[in-house]
Write a protein that binds this DNA or RNA. Sequence first.
DNA 1: TCCATGCTTCAATTGTTATTGAAATATCGA
DNA 2: TCGATATTTCAATAACAATTGAAGCATGGA
Lengths: 107, 107
Amino acid sequence: MERKSIVTALAALAQDSRLAIFRLLVQTGPEGLSAGKIGEALGIAPSSLSFHMKELTYAKLVSSRQESRYVIYSANFQTMNELIGFLTENCCHGQPCMPALSEERFP
Amino acid sequence: MERKSIVTALAALAQDSRLAIFRLLVQTGPEGLSAGKIGEALGIAPSSLSFHMKELTYAKLVSSRQESRYVIYSANFQTMNELIGFLTENCCHGQPCMPALSEERFP
DNA sequence: TCCATGCTTCAATTGTTATTGAAATATCGA
DNA sequence: TCGATATTTCAATAACAATTGAAGCATGGA
């Protein structure tokens, strides 16, 4: 993942509604949620939601699939990981620095 | 860490220069770097750098200390971790989802 | 085929952010 | 004390992002 894509992903997450959407989808898992459910769960107007989903999709943080007349969105876990990896890469010259923080992060 | 602080931190990182600054400081470790060194390393003008450091400081992603006439900045690792924790919290309802990703992230 | 539902697109408005150069402040060494 | 170095502040400009409501486009059921 290149630096430009990382900035795009961070910018996509750096917004109240989108951060809430992304987290909801992360917690929901691969089965995802329809646009309608997301909007309802978070109190976001349809056109506004659509705008935000487009940003998240462009940043490759979520994927969508059509299911009859619903659009189902789900989190893209790989992008999330590449993001985290980028931020922490080669931390402290690779020297031991935070032994307490290496617990399992993904179940 | 509250959601508002998370958005602030993400917004601080969602910018080319600041992401580069933060990464440089993460890789440098606790000893940190002076403002001048950072600007020189990344080709950022002093006033612009100062603006960005203020953003990163406000977001608690970096800390600074005065050392004679230099200002030394260093990454705030705790904030970085809280950020990562927030994004991945309760991933997939807590069900196993990505066993391959649990390798140590911090040396 | 027609209507209702689910979602997206568009245009306008408003607010926020980055960059620049010049000026200010503060510390150090001669 | 004076000049040089290190950094921050300020004001102006230009670019970008979020929200709203109305209109558009599919899909599915009566």
